[in-house]
Amino acid sequence: MAAAAAAGAGPEMVRGQVFDVGPRYTNLSYIGEGAYGMVCSAYDNVNKVRVAIKKISPFEHQTYCQRTLREIKILLRFRHENIIGINDIIRAPTIEQMKDVYIVQDLMETDLYKLLKTQHLSNDHICYFLYQILRGLKYIHSANVLHRDLKPSNLLLNTTCDLKICDFGLARVADPDHDHTGFLTEYVATRWYRAPEIMLNSKGYTKSIDIWSVGCILAEMLSNRPIFPGKHYLDQLNHILGILGSPSQEDLNCIINLKARNYLLSLPHKNKVPWNRLFPNADSKALDLLDKMLTFNPHKRIEVEQALAHPYLEQYYDPSDEPIAEAPFKFDMELDDLPKEKLKELIFEETARFQPGYRS
């Protein structure tokens, strides 16, 4: 834990890192770190609560700039109880001085990944967590956004079992017609939660990839272990087919990539493993919904509104309290091709509203 900075004593240090967030945020305490930044909790002297502050230093890398800009653009436009918001952003007053960006968010005690390492969940908890994931996802999908990296560590939890989806750095506007060349190379989302079509096709992607990830998360809540822990690309596919069985001819016809289709045709026939054999203690309604989410063919996979209306979630289902976005989200430009200098300018502009004396 960093010592509390005395008023006016300059930035606090946390594990050798400068955290320049005073005077409003003090009493910093280390939480963890990701690929390009550290997260601390801090005391907000204005709202009198502890908050989470993520320090991001992305400006050396085009990919990190892209992810940072995506996350900020999306989260500043989203407003939903099951999606983490941005409360404040701290950065230098000029673009030349801006080396880091500090993002202030609600402090959540833990995440689903940490929880599943230590606790076996009751059916009631599984049901409530799944409902909140789908409630947040309904809003995301209504904005025409794909999260693309749903996994237990991106689901934040607090002691009252509130759940918030975080990390929109890989999110995209849904565009089933656009052929994202190089899709697989830039697709760094965790393999275990990846839909089979991501490994088999490169053309376009749809909201059904997020539903697949939610199915993987439900299976993990039922058993405290990942359902498809593939060691590499082909191993991942083999794990999936080992449980779902061989795809039907109709399902194979959806695979545009001939090499991928021929690979699947070359494999020995596998039978589907019954879900109640894998999860003998699970609620039968939970397994019915799991089956509809972990469907090989993305066109037959359940959609988020149908999933919310499934009998497993009937005690929570309330369409009048499951809000959607006001308007579909649009990125003005494809960020993939922009140089990091341009992305830095866009991050600077996007964060201006939090600067003292800002006038829109």
Rank of each mutant, 00 (worst) to 15 (best):
R24A: 00
K300N: 15
L184V: 04
I140N: 13
P196C: 04
K203E: 07
I140V: 09
V18Q: 06
S29R: 13
T68V: 12
I31F: 15
V145M: 09
S266M: 03
L121F: 04
L264D: 03
K330P: 08
F354I: 14
P268R: 06
N123W: 02
Y64T: 15
C254F: 12
F78G: 06
L134G: 05
G85K: 13
D179K: 03
L155N: 01
S284R: 03
K48I: 12
E81G: 13
F279V: 11
A7Y: 13
E349G: 07
D318F: 10
K114M: 01
N47P: 13
L156T: 01
L222I: 09
E322Y: 00
L146M: 12
N47Y: 15
D332L: 05
L155Q: 15
S122W: 08
F354S: 00
P280Q: 10
M333K: 15
S223D: 08
P226K: 01
V214F: 08
I126T: 07
H299G: 03
R191Q: 14
G245S: 11
F19E: 07
G22F: 09
L157V: 09
K117N: 15
F228G: 00
H299M: 11
Q236T: 00
M333N: 04
V173S: 07
H141S: 12
T351D: 02
C161I: 06
K138W: 05
V214D: 07
N47A: 12
L76S: 06
H232L: 15
Y139A: 09
C166P: 07
K272S: 05
P58G: 15
N158Y: 13
L267Y: 02
A35H: 08
F348S: 07
N297M: 03
I140T: 00
W192S: 11
F331V: 12
K203S: 09
F296G: 01
A143S: 12
A189N: 12
L28T: 01
I324C: 01
T190G: 10
Y358C: 12
R15W: 14
D210M: 04
L343S: 11
E305W: 08
N253H: 11
E60M: 14
Y113N: 15
W212M: 05
V214N: 06
E345Y: 06
E350Y: 04
E71P: 15
Y316L: 06
G8I: 07
R353S: 14
R301N: 02
F183M: 09
G215V: 14
I209S: 10
K259N: 13
L115M: 09
E341A: 05
L115P: 03
Q105E: 14
N271H: 12
N257R: 07
L258D: 04
G204S: 08
D179M: 08
M221C: 10
M108H: 00
I95S: 08
A52W: 00
A309R: 03
G242T: 06
N144Q: 06
V21I: 07
L121Y: 04
L313Q: 14
N154P: 07
L137I: 02
E345T: 03
T351M: 06
Y205C: 03
Q66A: 10
D149R: 08
Q119V: 03
E220G: 00
R91F: 07
T110A: 10
L184R: 04
R135C: 13
R191I: 04
P11A: 13
C127F: 14
L338H: 03
F129A: 02
H80P: 01
E81V: 12
L75N: 03
S57A: 12
E197F: 06
T181H: 11
K114H: 07
A307H: 00
L115W: 00
G16C: 12
Q17I: 09
D149F: 02
N154M: 08
F78W: 05
D20Q: 01
H239M: 00
L170R: 04
K117I: 06
G10P: 06
C127S: 15
L290G: 02
N257C: 07
I347C: 11
L134R: 04
Y358E: 10
M108A: 13
K344V: 09
K99R: 12
A3L: 13
H147T: 10
D321R: 03
K164V: 04
I347Q: 14
R277T: 11
R191A: 01
L338R: 00
Y187Q: 03
E109I: 02
L163V: 07
L76I: 01
Y312V: 01
E60Y: 12
L289I: 08
L241S: 10
L116M: 12
K285D: 08
I89F: 13
M199Q: 04
